[in-house]
């Protein structure tokens, strides 16, 4: 989003504008500095607490051990094979599950949201499905689809579907009645209203749900691997757990965090592109 866009048309950058830009740059530098500082302090405290015997590294590991574990995985590979291959397996399950789950969710959410009766009938079951812990289905999927990729993808799909579905459904229901009426008067058919009014207004909701649901897809894939698999980061964690290797668990967590962060970044970029019509939120001053 362009926060530096000026309302005054034409003219070169004035002193005032330049000062505003400098202020924004300074602020973002401060934020980055504080972020790094916080990470350093946290890790140092952890390491020192282990050195002075305040925490038992057998249970809680220590940053240097985690670093060593990561280095070993990167250079020599894991017990199951090279780290990148394990990661690739997990990523594949996550991404496929994420896409299938969100596409199905968006489609069903919009279709049901546009049909009042069907929406009223189904909404209660959606609430129920959202409330029960769906990871439990992982066990069933392993029975059905076996130890391969299918069971993990299925679990990821189920994790993602209901979140996206719920948001798409809600987004369609919240679409402004006035805008819909205006579109009909301007000559739109029901189909045109769906595509040019309902979907754009539901998009804010849908994109918001995609942020959460990528994390859910990752949980689905990892838990699936955890329950039974031959490859993947989830298996890596299960193995580390079996050998009481706390550093291994933490290292795997860091790998997953990096993946989740990258996905978050991509989704935010997508959101900014699709929602560039949205006004910039008011900023609360004096913070």
């Amino acid at each position: 989003m362009n926060i530096f866009s000026t309302t005054s048309s034409g003219g070169s950058a004035s002193e005032e504008e330049r000062r505003a830009v400098a202020k924004a740059v300074n602020r973002s530098r401060l934020v980055i500095f504080l972020r790094i500082g916080l990470a350093v302090v946290t890790l140092a405290t952890w390491e020192l607490a282990v050195i002075y015997g305040l925490i038992d590294p057998f249970f809680f590991s220590r940053p240097s051990d985690i670093y060593t574990q990561l280095a070993v995985w990167l250079t020599e590979g894991t017990a199951q094979g090279p780290l990148w291959r394990e990661l690739l397996v997990t990523m594949e399950e996550t991404v496929i599950g994420f896409f299938i789950g969100s596409l199905l969710g968006i489609f069903c959410g919009i279709a049901l949201g546009r049909n009042k009766l069907a929406g009223d009938v189904f909404s209660i079951y959606i609430k129920i499905a959202n409330a029960i812990p769906r990871v439990v289905l992982g066990s069933i999927f392993i029975i059905i689809f076996g130890l391969g990729m299918g069971s993990k993808v299925a679990l990821a799909v189920v994790m993602v579907f209901f979140v996206v579905f719920g948001n798409a459904f809600q987004g369609v229901r919240e679409a402004d009645r006035n805008l819909i009426a205006n579109a009909y008067i301007l000559g739109a058919s029901k189909r045109q209203v769906t595509f040019s009014v309902v979907i754009p207004s539901a998009l804010t909701w849908i994109l918001a749900s995609l942020h959460v649901s990528f994390g859910f897809a990752l949980v689905g894939a990892v838990v699936g691997e955890f329950l039974g698999s031959r490859h993947g980061i989830g298996l890596l964690i299960a193995t580390a757990q079996g050998t009481f290797n706390a550093a291994g668990v933490f290292a795997a967590m860091i790998v997953l965090a990096v993946v989740a962060l990258a996905a978050e970044y991509l989704l935010t970029a997508l959101e900014d592109r699709l929602l560039k019509w949205r006004p910039v939120q008011f900023v609360e001053h004096g913070m």
Partner: peptide, 22 residues
């Protein structure tokens, strides 16, 4: 309409052009 009913995700020209497109 009495209340604002232009489409917030369309710019001015696309808002005006929407009727003929429909």
């Amino acid at each position: 309409f009495q209340t604002d009913a232009v489409f917030p995700w369309k710019n001015v020209i696309d808002n005006v052009a929407i009727g003929p497109i429909y």
